[in-house]
């Protein structure tokens, strides 16, 4: 197991390096610099700004400088927000996005697994169709639609919940978490239904039933373990994707998170910020994929022998 983890971590180094290099040259080849503006910027201003951020040097030299700074843990200053460093901006808003992601994941897992398992218990009956149809709606319903809908119903008309903010008014975290979690809940519902259906026909479940164990014990102790495998595999990448995709929800609900930077930085050509957020999200993706592989092995010991060799 340790060998597997350290192997994967070692593989992460070249992956990160390639991502950094490719991103760096990609963004420097995109048209429109960080300082272009609606009003013509005087030549001397452009010159001063380029000199300040070393944009007057050849790109390869900028790249080496960047790598050097990066090796010391310095993401550099933001181009769009001159008084801020990228480190400050990422680590300052990371907590918020992580918290949002965590709540959203909780919503997704609880609702998704419940619906999926309930549906799988009586396939092709109303008990199956209803939750699965709701799940389908959840998948189709993009957050830019669900968010405003929830806000209008629970915030504006019923006045039950705050419609914006994060940690300012009690309850203002509920709607964003549901909005972000909903489509993942729907995926999880479908995945867990599929997984459960598969497992329920397996011999060991039949054996357990034959031994006269009560149905809920069979489901909780035996079936869930195998049936949730696809969900576990999904969770890792999903959580990383959820963090990177929190942009829409953060905008709808005025949440000071990282997702907003990730998207805005690209539009602003805030080079250092694009690099910083990209590196940050790559690390997250790699770590969570690894985590979900480890979790899968831990839950299903049978995989240990199989994947041990295949994964390394």
């Amino acid at each position: 197991m340790l060998k597997f983890i350290s192997g994967r971590l070692l593989q992460a180094i070249p992956v990160l390096f390639i991502v950094i290099t490719a991103t760096f040259f990609l963004i420097h080849s995109a048209p429109g610099g960080p300082f272009s503006a609606d009003r013509a910027v005087p030549a001397q201003v452009i010159k001063a700004l380029n000199a300040r951020y070393h944009l007057d040097q050849p790109v390869w030299q900028q790249y080496l400088t960047y790598l050097g700074d990066l090796a010391q843990g310095d993401f550099g200053p933001s181009f769009k927000f001159p008084g801020r460093s990228v480190n400050e901006m990422i680590f300052g808003s990371l907590g918020t996005t992580a918290e949002l992601g965590l709540y959203a994941m909780l919503v997704a897992v609880i609702i998704g697994v419940l619906a999926g398992v309930v549906a799988a218990l009586k396939p092709n009956t109303a008990q199956d169709y209803v939750p699965m149809s709701v799940a389908m709606v959840g998948i189709c319903m993009p957050s830019f639609l669900l968010g405003p809908l929830l806000v209008l119903v629970f915030g504006i008309y019923l006045e039950w919940l705050p419609i914006s903010g994060w940690g300012d008014i009690p309850g203002d975290k509920i709607l964003p978490a549901i909005t972000l979690g909903a489509s993942y809940a729907a995926y999880i519902a479908r995945l867990s239904r599929g997984g459960m259906l598969e497992v329920m026909t397996q011999d060991y479940i039949r054996t357990a039933r034959a031994k006269g164990l009560p149905e809920h014990i069979v489901i909780i102790k035996h079936a869930l373990r195998g049936g949730l495998m696809p969900v576990i595999a999904f969770l890792g990448p999903a959580f990383a994707g959820l963090l990177a995709g929190s942009f829409v929800v953060e905008t709808i609900f005025q949440i000071p998170g990282l997702g907003r930077f990730y998207v805005q930085a690209a539009f602003n050509r805030d080079y250092t910020m694009i690099m910083g957020t990209t590196i940050f999200f790559s690390v997250t993706i790699i770590l969570f994929n690894l985590l979900s592989d480890i979790l899968a092995t831990w839950i299903n010991p049978k995989l240990r022998h199989q994947s041990g060799g295949a994964e390394s």
Partner: peptide, 9 residues
């Protein structure tokens, strides 16, 4: 319960 407990203040 959570929903109703949290008034907007």
């Amino acid at each position: 319960l959570i929903l109703t407990a949290c008034g907007s203040g």
